[in-house]
Amino acid sequence: MCLINFHFQDHPIYRLIVAANRDEFYERPTAPAHFWEDQPHLLAGRDLSQHGTWLGITKNGRFAALTNYRDPSEQKKEIRSRGEIVTAFLDSDMTAAEFLKSLQLKRSEYAGFNVIAGTVDELFYYSNVENEVKEISAGTHGLCNHFLNTPWPKVIKGKMDLHRIVEQKRAIQPSELFGVLQHAEPFPDEQLPNTGVGKQLERILSPLFIKSEGYGTRSSTVLLIDHENTITFVERTYRDGIFMEERSFSFRIEN
């Protein structure tokens, strides 16, 4: 997952609104969103290479999503798959704060990552680069391949476009949030961050929706949880920038 726009609480209809894109190599084998056969309480897409996930939710309302932290100078060979972090939280009985504090103890076993974890009652953020567990405040937030709310152009635009929808204080159609995620125009060079990958690659990676040879946005996910605890989860999958499939799920949070 490479871009997560979300609005937490502070809305008359929804307790959590998420619009997120996963960017990955096109050849990496992936299963679309489904309730996993070996963990039937868990709804998520699945990386078939390491068997973890980048974003998911459970029938009892536990939610987590992860992005990689971009640092081309990092020479560390990944000991463990970062995708297992989301799965481990969703399969755990620990609170988000407890889980992330336990994750701190083994942070060196993973390459750089950011993770959001919690429920509609409380959300927390942790990066093993920054190494601080933080409670997320109500409002609109954005996370890409740096820290939470870092003002990269795609983060700023994603937050602004999401907030324009949220501030209308009405029911939201998933198609509106997918529209936020479809912006595929690179940003001007003078606005791009310098993350050490070179200007050409910074330009390719700058849009909310990435299309390039061999790599790009593989899936977009919209999640809505209302005040009646009804979950709406919709995923669209892509190949080479071409829409492939949409899957939609709706259910109530189980007590």
Score class of each variant (00 low, 15 high):
Gln173Thr: 06
Thr237Asp: 04
Ile225Trp: 07
Val197Ala: 09
Glu228Tyr: 14
Ile165Glu: 06
Glu27His: 14
Ala171Thr: 12
Glu24Asn: 13
His163Glu: 10
Ser248Tyr: 11
Gly196Ala: 15
Ala138Glu: 13
Glu74Gln: 13
Met94Asn: 03
His34Trp: 04
Gly56Arg: 02
Ser81Glu: 08
Glu74Gly: 13
Leu148Lys: 03
Glu190Asn: 12
Phe63His: 05
Leu66Ser: 02
Arg22Ala: 12
Asn5Lys: 08
Asp91Glu: 15
Thr221Trp: 03
Ile79Met: 11
His34Gly: 02
Ile231Gly: 04
Phe124Pro: 03
Pro40His: 08
Asp189Pro: 01
Leu162Ser: 07
Asp189Ala: 15
Phe209Lys: 04
Ser81Cys: 10
Asp71Met: 09
Tyr215Ala: 12
Glu235Trp: 09
Arg164His: 15
Ile210Tyr: 02
Val234Glu: 02
Gly112Glu: 02
Asp10Ala: 14
Asn5Ser: 10
Ala111Val: 15
Gly118Ile: 02
Thr140His: 00
Ser92Ala: 13
Arg218His: 07
Tyr215Lys: 07
Cys144Asp: 03
Arg239Met: 15
Leu55Lys: 08
Ser175Gln: 08
Tyr110Pro: 02
Ser73Asn: 09
Lys59Ser: 10
Ser220Val: 15
Arg82Glu: 10
Glu130Ala: 12
Ile13Phe: 06
Phe35Trp: 05
Pro29Tyr: 11
Asn5Thr: 13
Glu78Thr: 15
His146Tyr: 12
Ala96Lys: 01
Ile204Leu: 15
Val166Pro: 03
Lys159Gly: 07
Ala184Glu: 03
Lys169Val: 14
Arg203Ala: 11
Tyr110Cys: 00
Ile225Ser: 07
Thr195Phe: 00
His11Gly: 06
Asp121His: 11
Ile85Thr: 04
Asn149Val: 04
Thr237Ser: 12
Ser81Asp: 06
Leu224Asp: 02
Gln9Arg: 14
Pro72Glu: 07
Ser248Met: 09
Asp121Lys: 12
Lys159Glu: 03
Phe233Glu: 10
Arg239Ala: 15
Ile85Met: 01
Arg15Asp: 13
Ala171Cys: 13
Thr58Phe: 01
Gly196Asn: 14
Asn114Ile: 05
Glu132Cys: 13
Ala44Met: 09
Glu202Ser: 10
Gly83Met: 00
Pro32His: 01
Leu181Trp: 09
Ile4Tyr: 01
Thr53Phe: 05
Val115Pro: 08
Glu167Thr: 13
Lys154Tyr: 09
Leu103Ala: 11
Leu55Val: 01
Asn131Gln: 11
Phe178Ala: 13
Lys159Tyr: 00
Val166Thr: 10
Lys154Val: 05
Phe6Arg: 00
Asp23Met: 10
